[in-house]
């Protein structure tokens, strides 16, 4: 029988003796590529209990057991490196960008808060916050540097804030500049995500919008996984806490996970939100599948979704009447 091993093909007899061998050269690169090519090869698999090391010694591929291991070590190591470098697909880059965006947002917000606390002591009347405040401080520093034509000038002149010492001013200005560059960074990442989504998942971008689409890919782990999810899973991605509460105890099932940020859902009245979330999720899963398996853009998806949502809303124009509970008290929900 024929047996594939990482160092070549062996032809063995009935008792397991090696009749013939076609060996690969002892070049690591060649062995790596050959070994990787065997991953999906279902023919000539080694039989149960087959010992490739013994075979390698017998057929003369290696002289000693130590040589076998050292060569195997190099080959597996290089093969793994090659596979890892190939694993960074475009959707993985989007995931990194989404996570970076969340980190940048968190950092920016807490630094912004710190800046506003800090500068508040010197110019509490400014009424500025966030990026505007950071830009203001980076530009002017002390409120005394404002020109008379600036709209904030009267407020600055009558401010109850303390005088900003030069040393503090330098520090605050630098701090504000860093925050400004973080805001800039945020915009760049957002643009990057939008552009990459257009390339990687145009349909998902169309139906979900770039940020929601990217977040769905990020939570699913990859575009492939998202495409394999049933739409009911997509509907509740990001609501795992509520979902498991529902599965464990008698809590109500979640209507929507992060797809709640979809404008069709968060603008809908409460009594149709679950229905609309289901419709949106089904189109999202279609979009992800088209993106992963064919990649062609299909604008009819959004049209169909909008028709469906309109239909749901016209069929349910009013909130449902609460059912009168007759007789016994309603069961109390068990909480865990």
């Amino acid at each position: 029988m024929k047996i594939n091993t990482w160092f070549g093909v062996l032809e063995t007899g009935k008792a397991g003796e090696i009749l013939e061998s076609r060996l690969i050269s002892k070049d690591v690169r060649e062995l790596v590529l050959y070994s990787l090519s065997l991953r999906d090869n279902k023919s000539n698999l080694p039989p149960e209990g087959f010992d490739p090391k013994a075979a390698a010694l017998k057929c003369g591929f290696v002289e000693t057991s130590a040589e076998y291991y050292s060569l195997l070590h190099e080959v597996t190591l290089e093969a793994a490196k090659l596979q890892v470098s190939g694993a960074l697909t475009p959707d993985q880059r989007i995931i990194q960008a989404v996570e970076a965006l969340d980190d940048v947002n968190e950092t920016t917000n807490s630094l912004s808060e710190r800046l506003s606390e800090w500068y508040g002591g010197y110019f509490p009347e400014s009424g500025l916050g966030g990026e505007d405040l950071a830009l203001f401080i980076a530009k002017y520093g002390s409120r005394e540097n404002l020109g008379p034509q600036d709209p904030l000038y009267p407020k600055a002149r009558n401010s109850m804030g303390a005088k900003l010492e030069p040393a503090d001013e330098v520090l605050l200005k630098g701090f504000a500049e860093s925050i400004c560059s973080l805001y800039e960074q945020r915009r760049q990442i957002e643009i990057y995500i939008e552009d990459s989504m257009e390339l990687v998942a145009p349909n998902l971008k169309l139906v979900a919008g770039p940020m929601l689409g990217a977040r769905l890919i990020s939570l699913a782990g990859s575009l492939e996984k998202l495409a394999e999810f049933p739409s009911s899973t997509i509907q509740v991605i990001g609501a795992s806490k509520a979902l498991f509460k529902h599965l464990r105890a008698r809590a109500p099932s979640p209507k929507h996970g992060i797809i709640y940020s979809h404008p069709l859902i968060n603008t809908a009245p409460w009594w149709v939100r679950g229905k609309i979330a289901r419709a949106v999720a089904s189109k999202l899963s279609l979009a992800a599948r088209i993106d992963f398996y064919s990649g062609k853009k299909d604008p009819s998806l959004t049209e169909k979704l909008e028709t469906k949502v309109l239909q749901i809303r016209t069929l349910n124009p009013r909130p449902p009447q609460k059912k009168q509970v007759s007789g016994a008290k309603p069961k109390k929900k068990r909480r865990k």
């Binding site: 594939n4 990482w6 065997l38 991953r39 698999l45 080694p46 209990g49 087959f50 090391k53 597996t76």
Partner: peptide
């Protein structure tokens, strides 16, 4: 295991 059987000894 088929995908790495060519590498592993007993």
């Amino acid at each position: 295991p088929d995908s790495y059987s060519h590498l592993i000894e007993p």
